[in-house]
Write a protein that binds this DNA or RNA. Structure first.
Length: 548
RNA sequence: GGCCUUGUGGUCAAGCGGUUAAGACGGAGCCCUCUCAAGGCUCAAUCCCGGGUUCGAUUCCCGGCAGGGUCACCA
């Protein structure tokens, strides 16, 4: 068969360059030894989730700790999946979590000399190489229809055979020249398939940077490399792009492991050296007693938007991910509490091999801790950012008074004390937490543990003594005085010695006052809260509490 | 089902031939204390099972079992 003629018939494009030309256009990158070039290559659905962030973080850290490049390539070979504005959305979402690209699609960078970074715009490169493969007899046209393919697959399944287009099932592999040209003349649509040279009898061991040594079975499937619309499949585009964009390390989900044999063969027939690979394990969750991969349809917590909306501190999400990415990260952080996470020596070899369960408790803990390190001003900015985007009108009105909010924050966070408090876990919860500082949001839940007479007596005794000018000590002395006046123990030790002699202790008196002022039995230092609220509101709340 | 892959406390996990089998989150308790939070201390809790190899296996080998992934003109 005249494959050269066939190639021209199949791919008559006139804009294809000689193959060596592409090598010249995209020369090896001039980077220092050990520098890794990594990439994130999403399809433009606009939905990037925790799993994407997880691997993007690994890509970004590795590139930037080795002095390499992290770029963004858009895999838009499937027209059906395209969503408007998706690329900007990917960039924006990742930027929120401090993951930034050095080059690539929609990235304004002088480094952008390996583009275009949209696969659809790279059609000529793929087609040039597909044409070459056809000329070399390593690829051929296939006219099988979807129905025919499905029928074969059903047969194979019924006979417990391996499904797919291979060996005797690769019927178009043996088409005669006449048949091919007849089909072409009839205008039948066709795809280009790789004429696989492999055999499943052959096994080889492959070294994955994360998984270690894995055994792979040689590919024998005549996979589609060019779809009927002339656009490549993922496999073909991957081999060509990662070669010409000079990727040194491909980090991708472990769901790709099973198509690794195809990629190995593709790199081989194309004559490209293979990049290193690291297949990451996926984030799991427990569902109905068993583990399963986090799913974008079932699990809202997979969406990055979920974390923004709930007001998680972005650095906390990143650090949580770092703890599962490199399990020695936590230890390092404890030793270097002041250091930025980017100073951590991230290594791909430390990455876990098995799927980690997503642990919300852990995230919450990290988030609380991160947030507790902020200054009142920083906390205001963070909370306010959330309020402006997701808060209610009332929240926005409250946050208009920066000084007032910051004074509350200083108390809630324990700023100035020996140890910071960790009350604020995320913005949404933090904003709700301080609601009682605003009269319009004050919704007391007055569950008294004493009868009305006692409550009223305690409150009125305190109201009579209350002086806003008192410092903490003077204030507490008065609480003790109120306790003594009303049959409560002023000293805890007295109460503990013989509880039967008292109605309760100072702690109970403080609780009554606390409920009156904050509407809750628990809060940070009451004296300070009263100071922030001011005399008038304190008196009003005490009065209101007595009414019922 | 075939192929690939994983298996240390509830979770994330160190350890990889001899250890009292780290640590963190979560849980329980104690202390501190006007409550809560924070903090300090303490406790409970683990090597999937069965065979080997070995003086000795959580660590090595084999076989089970269980989990996960994948079998498209989607990526």
């Amino acid at each position: 068969m005249d494959t050269k003629k066939l190639a021209s018939a199949l791919i008559p494009d006139t804009d294809l360059l000689p193959l060596e030309e592409y090598e010249r256009m995209y020369p090896p990158r001039d980077l220092k030894k050990g520098a890794e070039v990594t990439r994130l290559a999403p399809s433009p659905t606009g939905f990037i989730h925790l799993g994407n962030l997880y691997s993007a973080l690994a890509d970004e850290r590795i590139a930037h700790t080795t002095g390499g490049i992290f770029y963004l390539r858009i895999e838009d070979t499937d027209e059906k999946r395209r969503v408007e504005g998706a690329v900007e959305s990917v960039i924006r979402s990742l930027k929120y979590f401090n993951v930034n690209f050095d080059e690539g699609a929609e990235i304004d960078s002088p480094l952008n000399s390996y583009g275009p970074y949209y696969q659809r715009r790279r059609a000529a490169i793929y087609r040039a190489f597909a044409k070459d493969l056809i000329e070399r007899g390593l690829a051929y046209p296939c006219f099988c229809t979807e129905d025919e393919l499905n029928k074969v697959r059903e047969e194979q399944t019924a006979n417990k055979l391996i499904t797919g287009y291979y060996g005797e099932y690769a019927v178009c592999r043996n088409l005669t020249e006449e048949q091919i040209y007849a089909n072409l003349a009839a205008g039948k649509p066709f795809v280009i398939r790789l004429k696989s040279q492999g055999s499943t009898q052959n096994k080889l061991t492959f070294r994955d940077r994360i998984k270690g040594e894995i055994t792979v079975t040689e590919n024998d499937q005549d996979v589609v490399i060019l779809k009927s619309d002339g656009i490549p499949t993922y496999h073909f585009a991957h081999a060509i792009d990662d070669h010409f964009m000079r990727t040194t390390l491909v980090i991708r989900g472990e769901e790709w492991l099973s198509s690794l044999p195809v990629h190995i063969e593709l790199f081989k027939v194309l004559g490209f050296p293979m990049p290193a690979y690291g297949h990451t394990c996926s984030l799991m969750k427990v569902d109905g007693g068993t583990k399963r991969k986090l799913s974008k349809r079932k699990d809202p917590e997979l969406s990055l938007d979920y974390y923004r909306r709930a007001g998680y501190y972005p650095v906390a999400v990143v650090k949580y991910l770092m703890t599962i990415l490199n399990s020695n990260f936590e230890e390092w952080e404890r030793k270097n509490p002041e250091a930025d996470y980017t100073q951590f020596k991230f290594t791909i070899e430390k990455m876990g091999k098995s799927g980690a369960l997503f642990d919300l408790d852990k995230l919450n803990d990290i988030s609380k801790t991160e947030l507790s390190k902020l200054s009142a001003a920083q906390m205001y900015d963070f909370l306010n950012g959330w309020v402006q985007e997701f808060g209610t009108d009332s929240d926005r009105a409250h946050f208009a008074d920066r000084a007032y909010i910051e004074s509350i924050l200083a108390l809630i966070m324990g700023i100035g004390g020996k140890k910071r408090r960790k009350d604020i876990e995320r913005a949404e919860q933090g904003v709700r937490l301080i609601a009682y500082f605003f009269d319009d949001a004050f919704a007391p839940d007055r569950s008294w543990r004493f009868d009305a007479d006692t409550v009223n007596a305690v409150i009125s005794s305190f109201a009579a003594l209350y002086d806003p000018a008192d410092d903490n000590q003077a204030w507490f002395a008065k609480v003790k005085e109120v306790a003594a006046q009303n049959g409560f123990a002023a000293e805890m030790s007295d109460y503990k010695a013989d509880p039967s002699k008292f109605k309760g202790s100072v702690a109970d008196v403080a609780e009554i006052l606390r409920i009156a002022i904050t509407g809750m039995p628990n809060s940070p230092d009451l004296c300070t809260i009263m100071g922030i609220l001011g005399r008038d509101r304190c008196l009003a709340r005490m009065n209101a509490a007595m009414l019922n």
